[in-house]
Structures are given as C-alpha cells and as structure tokens.
Design a protein around this nucleic acid. Structure first.
Length: 425
RNA sequence: GGAGAGAUGUCCGAGUGGUCGAAGGAGGCAGACUCGAAAUCUGUUGUAGUACAUUCGUAUUACCGAGGGUUCGAAUCCCUCUCUCUCCGCCA
C-alpha cells in the first residue's frame, strides 16, 4: 500500500494516478474515513490514559473506601473504553481495507492509457521469421508430435490442464536450466520456493485471494492459497524484517509452479499453452535501496532480454500503460516474443514481465532497512520473469517448426537437451 | 497423527497480577584512560502511532509469538491458534 500520511499531502497526484489507471477508487471517501478514524483513535487513547492513571493509583495500600471508589471509576472507564474501541476498530478495518485499494504511484515516464494498445513498444529485437509454408500453432504441432496432450489434461484435471510428454519434457527442463544459468551468472541466489502461501502474504504482495474475479486458488479452511508466481513467496521471504543496509541489494531467483484460475480466460488469444491453470516459472526478485530501484529494473529487463535473445527469438519490449499496470507496480516492462501461430499471421505474445513495485509491497509486508542515519526505511521490491516455461515453449515451438512438423531445438539449448530436433517418437 | 517442553528487546537470558518497556549479561554507539589498540571504567542504546512544539523536544498510546478472554489493573491467570524443540508413530 501507499503511505497513508500522503493521502492529503499528495492528494491531487493520487487522484490523477487513480484516473490514469482507470481505477474506481473513491479517495474522498477514504480520507473521510481516515479523519473519522483519527478522531476515534484520539478518544480511545485518552480513555486508555485515564484507565492507566486510575489503575496506577491503586498500587499501594489504601483505605477500603478509596479503593472501592477507584474500582467503581475503573469499571466505568472500562465500559466506556470497550464501546469506543469497538467503534474504532470497525472504522479502522474499513479504512485499512479502503487504503489498500489505492494503487502505487506511477513512473512519470510510464505511458498513460487505458489498455494494452496504449502501451509503448520501446524496443524491437530480431527478425520475424518467414516461412515458405503456412506455420502451424503450437497446439497442432504439439499434438501431432505427441509431446502435448490437452485432452488427457482435461479429463484428469479439467479444462486448461495439460500433459507435456516425450522430448518436450526434456526441452522444458533444458529451458529451466538454461535460464537458471544465465540468472546465476548475474549474482542471484537460487531458490525452489513453496507453491503455497498464506493469504496475508498474497495480500501484501498485492494479490486479492478472494472474490469472483480473483485469479487465485484458495485452499479451503487453511488460510492458504496456491501461488500464482514465486514473486509471492520470494516477496514474503523477508516479511517483518529490518535488513542491514549492507545486505542490499538482495537478488533472489525462485523456481515454482504457478497456479491461476483464469476464470473466463478462454478464446483464441488464450489458446493451448498460452494461458493455462498451471505452469512452471523461474522468477527474479530484488530488494534494494529506494534510489536504486530504477537501475535494478533495467538490470532485470536486460537479463530477460539476454535469455530471450539467446534463444534466437524475435521480440519487442513494451513499456506498460498505466491502465494495465496492476496496483502494486510503479512501472512495468513486458517482453513480447513473436509467435507465428498466434492470430491470423502471427503476433507478439507476452513472455516476461518485470515490475518495479517501489515501497508499495514493502510497506504492507513491513520490510525495511536501517539507513546510514540510523533511520529505518522501506526497501524497494522488484520482480521479473526469467522464464515462464509454458509461454517460452509456445514461442520456441512455433518459431522453430519445420514444414514436416518437426521442431528444431534452439542452439543455446542443445547442450542441455542432448538432441537438436523434436520428432514424433 | 500422539505425548511433552518452549516462544521475552540486536543476541543470550530473568521476571511473585500493580513499583515492568521490562533485571542481568553480551553486542552496538559515545566518552575517559592510551602514542594507538586490547583490557578496564562511565554513560547511552527497541519499534510504530497520536497531540502540542516543529530547533535538542514534551506528553501520551500500543507492542514480551498471534488472536480472544478474566481483572480497576496482564509479560505474568484462562482459552484458541501459529511456530520451534524432544520422544513415539508413519513415511519419499
């Protein structure tokens, strides 16, 4: 969440930001509740002070009459306090919930706009491949090579689940290791994270685990959820911690399964592996000093580019429009790889996403550092995809297909796969 | 899954319902001693709010794993939960 002390001091900025993001947040109502909360808090604290004063009068010996009088006073205070406290906690809970809906500030350079097409392509890399035949999409390719099985996935687990089979299993593992090696080269500490996290962690990261449109699977009766990304578990790692300044930056990379409900996510653009309920992903995460987060955002992006250019894929980098940022993100860059099987004649499809969330998540999760002046400040937190295996596989299968339906393995992966062609077994 | 023990400040560790934001030690910081260091001595040392002052501040509230409860008053008593440790069971 943002700093609630700024609701008034940065009022017009926050208001504009909400508008730029096309969000429906009533700032004035929230400020009203904030004022009401402050009023009640003051009353509660005054009552508590009187209660404490009354109690401390009763420490020593005294005549029974005085004692009886003080106890009666204490009882009255106690009752009054209970009422006020109930009133306060109701308003407080309301205010806290409302305050959490206020999005993070946006980077001044983030393009303002409502949706996808308002995002700005800031860089193009590589040649879009030309085929002397009509390229197939990855679903056709995968099923005819017997390396992808959506029918059995649907039968056993439901719609949008799948089995990966045969050589594609090895390709996925190769990709995983290929990306891991690149990320490790840049000084990240590797993790395999839990695939489950507590609801409070999800909320702190900025996910809403409940409600109709939630993308999160909750596990009934446990207070936990299946994670949608290792961003959640890497970001929760230092919850309630005061880090030493010398520890920063902390670079972590985590491999996890990712689970997403994707309610209503069907359609041409979500075909096959592109949008599924479960996939594996290697995620990068950085905790850093506030003044360094822009720099590290660029660093994450450049590692992502290294991974995808190394695979020989054509891609573009997109500076995401404010309306598409997601509440915690201050700025977000996506890499979109060219996917020949997407749409009518191929299209770019998102393969990575990196966000600078500044102190927004750190404030909710209470992750701070001790600065040189002894003051304790919130860290900045950034995340970025190293490789989302399912999406990368879509791009590789479609870009590296041959006319006979076989698929070449990108050069960079051959040392990891041990073969250079995927054929029907 | 069963039985037991435990959770206190940066760390270790004490704590009879009121004099406990919390003994004592270690560590950190400042100072004395020293050419300098070690040792020694002295002082100091949590976090988050709120109200005034907004210059050092003053007052006050909350926090002893989390959440409830009892009480005029809870680190201390009661309940629930979480986590850690030991033993048993089960298992990759």
């Amino acid at each position: 969440m943002i700093d609630i002390k700024e609701l008034k001091t940065r009022y017009s900025e926050i208001k504009k930001n909400i508008a730029d993001r096309y969000m429906n947040v009533d700032l004035d109502k929230i400020i009203q509740d904030q004022d009401r909360r402050a009023e009640l808090l003051l009353e509660v604290e005054n009552l508590r002070a009187r209660r404490n004063e009354n109690a401390s009068k009763m420490k020593g010996k005294m005549d029974p009459e005085t004692r009886a009088r003080l106890i009666a006073e204490g009882k009255a205070l106690k009752e009054e306090l209970a009422g006020k406290e109930a009133e306060f906690s109701a308003v407080d809970a309301l205010f806290q919930a409302e305050a959490r809906t206020i999005p993070n500030y946006a980077h001044p350079k983030a393009p303002v706009g409502k949706e996808d097409k308002d995002s700005l392509a800031v860089k193009f890399h590589g040649e879009i491949p030309h085929f002397s035949f009509k390229p197939k999409d990855h679903v056709q390719l995968g099923e005819s090579l017997d390396v992808l099985d959506f029918d059995s996935g649907a039968k056993v687990a439901g719609q949008k689940f799948y089995y990966i089979k045969n050589q594609l299993v090895i390709l996925q593992m190769a990709l995983e290791r290929y990306a891991m090696d690149i990320v490790l080269k840049h000084g990240f500490t590797p993790f395999i994270t839990p695939d489950i996290a507590k609801e409070e962690i999800l909320q702190g990261i900025g996910f809403n685990p409940r409600g109709e449109e939630s993308n999160i699977y909750t596990i009934e009766g446990t207070g936990t959820c299946l994670v949608g990304t290792a961003e959640i578990t890497l970001g929760g790692y230092y919850q309630n911690t005061i880090l030493d300044k010398s520890q920063l930056p902390i670079r972590m990379t985590g491999l996890s399964h990712c689970f997403r409900r994707e309610a209503g996510g069907a359609g041409q653009y979500s075909k096959g592996l592109y949008r599924v309920h479960q996939f594996s992903k290697l995620e990068m995460f950085i905790y850093c000093l506030p003044e360094e987060s822009d720099k590290f955002h660029e660093e994450i992006l450049s590692i992502e580019e290294e991974i995808f250019s190394g695979l020989g894929l054509a891609y573009r980098v997109v500076d995401t429009a404010t309306g598409d940022l997601g509440a915690p993100a201050y700025r977000k860059f996506d890499i979109e790889a060219w996917m020949p099987g997407r749409g009518e004649a191929g299209e770019y499809g998102e393969v990575t996403s990196t966000s600078n969330c500044t102190d927004y998540q750190a404030r909710s999760l209470n992750i701070r550092y001790r600065d040189d002046d002894g003051k304790i400040r919130f860290v900045h937190m950034l995340n970025g995809t190293a490789v989302a295996l399912s999406r990368a596989i879509v791009a590789i299968m479609e870009n590296y297909q041959n006319e006979d339906g076989t698929i070449r393995v990108p050069q960079a992966l051959v040392p990891y796969t041990g073969f250079d062609l995927i054929t029907k077994k």
